[in-house]
Simulated assay, not measured.
Amino acid sequence: MEQRILGRTGRPVSVIGLGTWQLGADWGDVREEEARAVLEAAYEGGVRFFDTADVYGDGLSERRIGSFLHERGIDDVVVATKAGRRMPQTPQIYSLDNLRAWTDRSRAHLRVQTLDLVQLHCPPTAVYGTDAVFDALDTLVEEGRIARYGVSVETRAEALTAIARPNVASVQLILNMMRLGPLAEVLPAARAAGVGIIVRVPLASGLLSGRYDENTTFAANDHRTFNRDGSAFDVGETFSGVDFATGLEAVRRLAPLVPDGATMAQFALRWIIDQPGVSTVIPGARTPEQVRTNAAAADLAPLPAETVAAVEAVYRELIAPQLGDRW
């Protein structure tokens, strides 16, 4: 699989990575053997970037990744975790002592001395402008607890503030055919600064898989059931903030653009890979077949200009009026 350098980490990563929220929580239950099969399929398919967080299953996702890599003796996968969402969100919690404790916990879960990449996990907006937080992260680098650090953001303004900081290695954000906001300013700024871009929610919580319709239901403990109104966390993380019915209509209009021999999900992933400045995209998966299908998107040819224009037209007509400038 094609690899790209992940910004200021200097590390090569596969253009298709693996998001592992599903292996911890909030997407229904995933048994141990199912999680291991997903990780196996990802590695065998050329995936060399795993993204996790300390809050996914309260560390379950991290522990599953750590066990898999340790038991297989694998050392060529870059693992990015996130920190900060296990406590009520105020700027004050992002202290050196807390960051040290959080990263030490993740080091134990992932069975490593030094974490490859730690990302602030969508912290309060004020954190991005707080020098002491980034001084603390620099201290963790100096102590050898982490190799590099980045941020996971909700808004374009947060991304731009982070990109301007000299030691931020990467920015993780939502970008997909229903979330075009970062294209105009954020991605060019990241490229100019040498900051990596990690794309999450690439399939709009599964909408862009093309597998859902008006009769689709989700488990009670799946965020696509309990967070449609944003009552648990930022609603932009669920279906990219798009109303479910509107999202279904957008997918129906996008479906005729899918290249011959490709799936809707592969089309959506290829569109992201084609955006200048993107380092890696991290679709989640609950089954080995989903992993293999996602990885195969890297083999598709770049999309023609007329297809890209047609995607933008659907976005402008259906999605942009609903999202506005929120993200």
Rank of each mutant, 00 (worst) to 15 (best):
V151G: 06
L120M: 03
R86I: 15
G236Q: 02
D234G: 01
E312H: 01
G284L: 06
L18G: 05
E237M: 06
F226A: 15
T81C: 04
D274F: 15
R72I: 10
A126W: 03
W102F: 12
A80R: 03
R211E: 09
A193K: 14
L175K: 11
R36T: 06
A296N: 12
N167D: 13
L115N: 00
G206P: 12
A250W: 08
E142S: 13
T9Y: 00
G66W: 10
A295C: 01
T161S: 14
I197Q: 02
G241A: 05
E143R: 14
L23N: 04
P302V: 15
L69K: 04
L300N: 04
P124Q: 09
T20Y: 14
P304E: 10
V201R: 08
A159P: 10
D97A: 14
T287R: 13
P276G: 10
T20W: 01
G277I: 01
E33W: 05
F49G: 08
L110G: 04
A255G: 04
A53E: 11
R156H: 12
A262N: 09
T103Y: 01
L254H: 05
R156E: 10
G247R: 07
G150M: 00
P88K: 12
L180H: 15
P123L: 09
T217N: 00
L207W: 02
T103R: 05
L96S: 12
A35K: 04
A192L: 04
F49V: 05
Q3W: 02
